[in-house]
C-alpha cells in the first residue's frame, strides 16, 4: 500500500503521459477512421479499395506489429523521431482508426437510404450529402461502440511502455523492479489509474448517447 503513496509522483507522471497518448491518438484515430469510413462508401473505386484493404490488414494484425512498424521500420525508411512517443501515437492512431472506420461504416449503413436520396434530390454533392446529412446521423448511432474502441485504446496504450515510453505501464514496470516485495500493490496502483480514465469514459458514453439521440 505504502509503495503507491510513495510513488505517487511517478504514477501521476505516467498517468498524464497515458492520458496524453490516448487523447492525441484518439482524436487522430477518430478523424482518420471517419475519413476511412467515408472512403469506403465513396463513389470512387480506388478509395473504396484502399479503405477496405487498410481496415482488413490493420484490424487483423496485432497492435505490437503496428508498434514495431512505427518504432523500428519507419526510422529505417528515413522517418525519425526525437521521442518514442511520436512512434507510439502513430502506431496507436493507425491501429485504432481501422476499428473506428468499421464502427462508423456500420453507422452509415444504419441511416435510411431515403436521407441520402432526399439530400441528393435537392442538389447536394456527394461530399455534402455525407458531411451534412449522413455522418452527423451515423456518428450519433455509433457512440457506444466508439467509446468501447476508445476504452480499448486507453488500455492498448500500455504497449508503448514496452517501447521505452514512460507512461503508466512503463512506470509500473520500473516500480515493480524497484519494489520487488510489493509488486502486487504496484500493479493495483497502475490498474487504479487506468480505471480513472476508462470508467468516466463509459459514463460519458451514456450521457452523450442520451443527449444526441435522434428520434425517427
Amino acid at each position: 500500500m505504502d509503495v503507491i503513496i510513495e510513488s505517487l509522483p511517478q504514477y501521476w507522471d505516467g498517468f498524464l503521459r497515458t492520458l496524453f497518448l490516448a487523447v492525441v491518438s484518439g482524436i487522430i484515430a477518430l478523424v482518420f477512421g471517419t475519413l476511412l469510413a467515408a472512403a469506403r462508401v465513396s463513389p470512387i473505386a480506388a478509395l473504396r479499395g484502399f479503405s477496405m484493404a487498410y481496415v482488413e490488414v490493420v484490424r487483423n494484425t496485432p497492435l505490437t506489429i503496428a508498434f514495431f512498424f512505427a518504432a523500428v521500420v519507419l526510422p529505417r525508411l528515413g522517418v525519425t523521431f526525437e521521442q518514442f512517443e511520436i512512434a507510439a501515437i502513430i502506431a496507436l492512431s493507425a491501429y485504432t482508426a481501422a476499428f473506428i472506420a468499421e464502427a462508423v461504416r456500420s453507422g452509415v449503413n444504419s441511416v435510411p437510404v431515403g436521407q441520402a436520396e432526399a439530400a441528393r434530390s435537392i442538389g447536394m454533392k456527394f461530399g455534402q450529402v455525407l458531411s451534412l446529412i449522413i455522418l452527423p446521423q451515423a456518428l450519433r448511432t455509433v457512440i457506444p461502440p466508439l467509446i468501447n474502441i476508445l476504452i480499448a485504446l486507453v488500455k492498448n496504450s500500455s504497449v508503448a511502455g514496452a517501447f521505452y515510453v514512460l507512461e503508466l505501464f512503463g512506470y509500473g514496470k520500473q516500480l515493480a523492479n524497484d519494489h520487488g516485495d510489493a509488486v502486487m500493490w504496484v500493479l493495483v496502483g497502475v490498474a487504479f489509474f487506468y480505471l480513472l480514465i476508462t470508467v468516466p469514459l463509459g459514463y460519458l458514453a451514456n450521457v452523450v448517447e442520451r443527449k444526441v439521440a435522434i428520434a425517427r
Binding site: G114, E117, A119, I122, M124, I214, A215
Partner: peptide, 24 residues
C-alpha cells in the same frame, strides 16, 4: 454522376412517399 447532375437535381423538386425529412 457528379457536379453537373447535382446542379440539375437542384432544379427538380422531389417529394417522397416516406417524407425523408433530415431527422437531425
Amino acid at each position: 454522376e457528379g457536379k453537373e447532375l447535382a446542379k440539375l437535381r437542384a432544379d427538380v423538386g422531389m417529394v417522397f412517399q416516406s417524407f425523408n425529412l433530415f431527422a437531425h
